[in-house]
Simulated assay, not measured.
Amino acid sequence: MKKIILFGALLAAVVACLPAQAQKAEPVRVVKAGTGKKIDVYVGKQLFTSFLYPDSLEKPVLYPLRPADGKVVTRGFPLQPKAGDPTDHPHHIGLWFNYENVNGLDFWNNSYAIPKEKKSAYGWIKTDRILTTSSGQTGVLAYHANWTNQANEVLLEETTRFEFSGTGRARTIDRVTTLKAVVPVTFNDAKDGLLGLRLAHELQMPSTQDQKFTDSKGIVTVVKAGTDHVPNGSYLTSAGKRGNDAWSTRGVWCKVFGKMGADSVSIAIIDHPGNPNYPTFWHARGYGLFAANPLGEKVFTEGKSAKNLRLEKGESATFRYRILIDDGSKTLSSHQLDEEAATFAKKNTASK
């Protein structure tokens, strides 16, 4: 009997260490939710995430994100605030894709909190049609959107395809976004971009300094260092940078990891060699912003070099990312993420 128990424990440990793609895939369902602009994605019987695309959000988002155990790994505020949620940066919602400076327009920081008289400086991403939804071992969702100014003049056409998959302990999102210039467009080198994710309170890094947050009503909250005992996360990049040292560095992948309840949770973003300015810079902040920004080179290198992406009318750029969410007794190892990155690199290598 002891041998059987030991064998079972060993087998469970081996399975837990297998890469996500080596485990049994669960069916994925991509379904319209109600009458609003919302599409739900299920892995097995569990709701994984929802695609929200009302114009009131200023851009389409995946929100919230859940690992296999059902916990929510993205911040609740501002859509579904939870007790203790930081209320800074109301434009940080779930998982999104936009940029701070496109022909001088700020798409990244636009939100309901921007006063009407200042809105003209901000861009808007308006989803005008869903192109594809399909279910199966891999779920697919594709949409078309326009990047516009406040006069509704289109700068860029966006076509994005999501592929969702999952197992008993892992969730995977492959995102391919192509931006086609309707007019000549310059992505001026800026800090805030491009693929962003706002983490749950638990996955923030513990703060060693006082933190000041201003909410959408201008109310300032100061959190004293050492008084917030919920955050326990940290970052690790493919280049071996840890914690706050991950910010502004390049890497093929970056993961955030921490405890949520009894489980270890990790979220990894993997860059693709077909992307502009590969490998990306990581805009990974301890307060919970986790972003990949290949176009912020001037900021991240302290002015040593810059990356201004120019698209003439009719030209396009394609960006590909893989997001892995895992929970269990251990987080994804560097070796597993290296293998995932190598697999992802072979997928759709040629730029469009």
Rank of each mutant, 00 (worst) to 15 (best):
K2D: 14
I4K: 07
G8F: 05
G8Q: 14
A12S: 15
A13Q: 07
A20T: 01
Q21P: 11
A33F: 11
T35A: 12
T35G: 14
T35R: 15
Y42R: 05
K45G: 11
L47A: 14
L47C: 08
F48R: 03
T49A: 06
T49C: 08
F51N: 02
Y53H: 12
P54S: 10
P54A: 03
P54W: 02
D55L: 04
P67G: 00
D69Q: 05
K71W: 00
K71L: 01
T74V: 07
T74S: 14
R75G: 00
G76P: 05
K82E: 12
T87H: 13
T87Y: 09
D88C: 09
D88I: 12
L95P: 00
N98F: 04
Y99A: 01
N103M: 10
G104T: 01
L105E: 06
F107C: 09
W108P: 06
S111G: 05
P115K: 07
E117F: 00
E117L: 01
K118V: 00
S120P: 00
A121K: 11
Y122L: 02
D128Q: 12
R129Q: 10
I130N: 04
G139Y: 06
L141P: 07
Y143D: 09
H144D: 14
H144N: 09
N146V: 07
T148S: 10
N152Q: 15
L156R: 01
T159R: 13
F164G: 06
G166H: 04
G166A: 06
G168Y: 03
G168S: 08
D174Q: 13
R175H: 01
K180Q: 13
A181G: 14
V183F: 04
V185E: 11
F187P: 01
K191N: 12
D192F: 08
L197A: 05
Q204E: 12
P206W: 14
Q209A: 13
D210R: 01
Q211Y: 10
K217Q: 10
G218W: 10
V222D: 13
V223D: 12
A225C: 10
T227P: 05
D228A: 00
P231L: 07
S238R: 00
K241H: 11
N244A: 14
A246W: 04
T249V: 05
T249L: 01
G251R: 00
K255F: 07
K259E: 15
M260V: 08
G261S: 02
S264P: 00
S266H: 09
I269W: 02
I269Q: 15
G274D: 06
W282E: 04
H283C: 02
R285M: 14
G296Q: 02
V299Y: 13
T301W: 01
K307T: 14
G314N: 15
T318M: 09
F319Q: 03
R322L: 03
I323M: 08
I323R: 01
L324E: 12
L324R: 09
D327L: 02
H335K: 15
D338Y: 04
A341I: 08
A341S: 11
A341L: 09
K347C: 05
A350M: 10
